[in-house]
Amino acid sequence: MLISNAYAQAAAPAATDPTGGLMGILPLVLMFVVLWFLMIRPQMKKAKEHQKMVGALQKGDEVVTQGGMAGRITKVGENFLTLAVSEGKDGAVEILVQKGAIGALLPKGTLKSL
């Protein structure tokens, strides 16, 4: 015959892993730790600082929205702010903005120098 018979070999005793398979999981755990410290933790810190800044806003503060509009806060509500963005011939031009849309708090007197 041209084809010989193939016989299964007896299974060798399994080599016991002294670490119990921990070395296979270690790279995944290490990647998660690196991602936590490089991406997730700084983002959470930045979000916490933004919440603190938004909570401390009050009438008269000068701010810039995330859309780039600069103005002075004239009214503060629970979820919205009223910003005076310019002076028109009939008085100040005011817009209503969500508190979360405030991007930065400006130092006092910044709007006069613009």
Rank of each mutant, 00 (worst) to 15 (best):
F37K: 06
E94T: 14
G103F: 01
K59L: 12
F80T: 03
P107Y: 15
T74G: 07
F37P: 00
P13T: 15
L38I: 12
E94F: 06
L83D: 00
V54F: 03
K52E: 10
A101Y: 10
M31R: 02
P18H: 00
K99F: 04
F32I: 15
A14E: 05
W36Q: 03
K75Q: 11
I95Q: 13
M53L: 10
D90H: 12
G91P: 01
L26M: 09
L2T: 06
L111C: 07
A104L: 09
L35P: 02
P42S: 11
Q43Y: 11
D90M: 14
I40T: 09
E78I: 05
I73M: 06
M31G: 03
D17T: 08
A11R: 12
A8R: 14
L28K: 14
G21Q: 03
G109S: 12
K59C: 06
T19P: 02
R41M: 06
P107D: 10
E49S: 10
L114F: 15
E49N: 08
E78Q: 12
I3E: 06
L57F: 14
A15S: 05
L81Q: 00
V33H: 03
W36R: 02
V93W: 08
S113H: 13
K89P: 04
A101I: 04
K75I: 07
S4Y: 11
I40W: 07
G71P: 01
V85H: 07
M23W: 03
E49K: 14
T16C: 01
H50C: 01
D17C: 06
A70W: 03
P13A: 15
L81N: 00
M31I: 09
M53R: 06
